[in-house]
């Protein structure tokens, strides 16, 4: 199986504190990996390091064969890593379709974007994504008027339109109702196999619904890695992260 993402001993410290410390990790192509961990465990920082938001002080990151360590964010995005932020960010003055149109400009150069209109093949892809994210009937709605959940799906849709090799989803269900969470799980499950996905999530119900492989982080390090059941039984995880209650929705 091909390895999509290789993280090799990456680390960064802020004012002497190691936020991420010597983390290594392999994510295979088509895999859906969940990153678990308490607040401050370094999950979001790890995503920042992968997507170029934060520069690492040690270690290396590879996307397939290409080393992308400390590239600029736009170059990393172009290389095929789509990042969804914890606080959903979309282009609020644009309609839903307008947002997807912008995202679908896969060639970043100005010269090649001096034409008007979106080519037909990409328009088709946009229609598919509108269906997939359930936003088809809101296609012409200004993004500013979407609900919180819809905004999250739109941002997810903008990434999918770009056909990234790797999706980084930072708490895709943050602030969602149960129904919305469930729908998000459906969308993500729909992507399984076609995209390699790395998800940071707190919501255990959601994690149970989607997780295959789980990596648990604690104080900037990888604590454990394995399937849901293996993680639930892991003593170190119980001790460090879950207290004596074991993994359950209540504990989180």
């Amino acid at each position: 199986m091909t390895v999509a993402l290789t993280i090799d001993g990456i680390g960064v410290s802020f004012a002497g504190v190691k936020a991420v410390d010597n983390v290594s990790m392999l994510v295979h192509e088509g895999e859906l990996r969940v990153l678990l961990g308490a607040n401050g465990a370094g999950k979001t920082t790890l995503m920042d390091l992968i997507s170029g938001k934060t520069r690492s002080t040690d270690g290396r990151v590879f996307l397939f064969e290409t080393e992308i360590t400390n590239w600029s964010p736009n170059r990393i995005a172009r290389a095929g890593i789509g990042r969804k932020f914890q606080i959903p960010s979309v282009f609020r003055d644009f309609s839903v379709r307008g947002n997807l149109n912008v995202a679908s400009c896969t060639d970043p150069r100005i010269r090649s974007n001096l034409g008007i209109g979106i080519p037909r093949t990409r328009r088709q892809r946009i229609e598919e994504v509108l269906e997939l994210t359930g936003l088809a009937e809101f296609a012409e709605t200004p993004a500013a008027n979407l609900s919180h959940g819809q905004t999250q799906w739109l941002e997810l849709g903008m990434l999918i339109v770009q056909n990234p090799k790797l999706l980084l989803l930072d708490e895709p269900t943050a602030g969602m109702t149960q129904n919305e969470t469930h729908k998000t799980a459906e969308i993500i499950k729909g992507l399984r196999g076609q995209h390699t996905i790395l998800v940071v999530e707190h919501d255990m119900a959601f994690v149970r619904e989607i997780a295959e492989q789980i990596t648990v982080m604690h104080l900037g390090r990888v604590l454990a890695e394995g399937s849901m059941t293996a993680i639930e039984r892991n003593e170190a995880v119980r001790h460090a992260y879950l207290g004596s209650y074991g993994i359950s929705a209540e504990a989180v």
Binding site: N74, A77, F85, F91, F94, V102, C105, P108, I116
Partner: peptide, 25 residues
């Protein structure tokens, strides 16, 4: 109204999002 013009307006709305969609802001 060109795609470049749309990208410019997108940058106005949310510079960060545009950067992480791969545009050299």
């Amino acid at each position: 109204e060109t795609r470049a013009g749309l990208i410019l307006q997108a940058i106005r709305d949310d510079q960060n999002r545009a950067r992480y969609l791969g545009f050299d802001v």
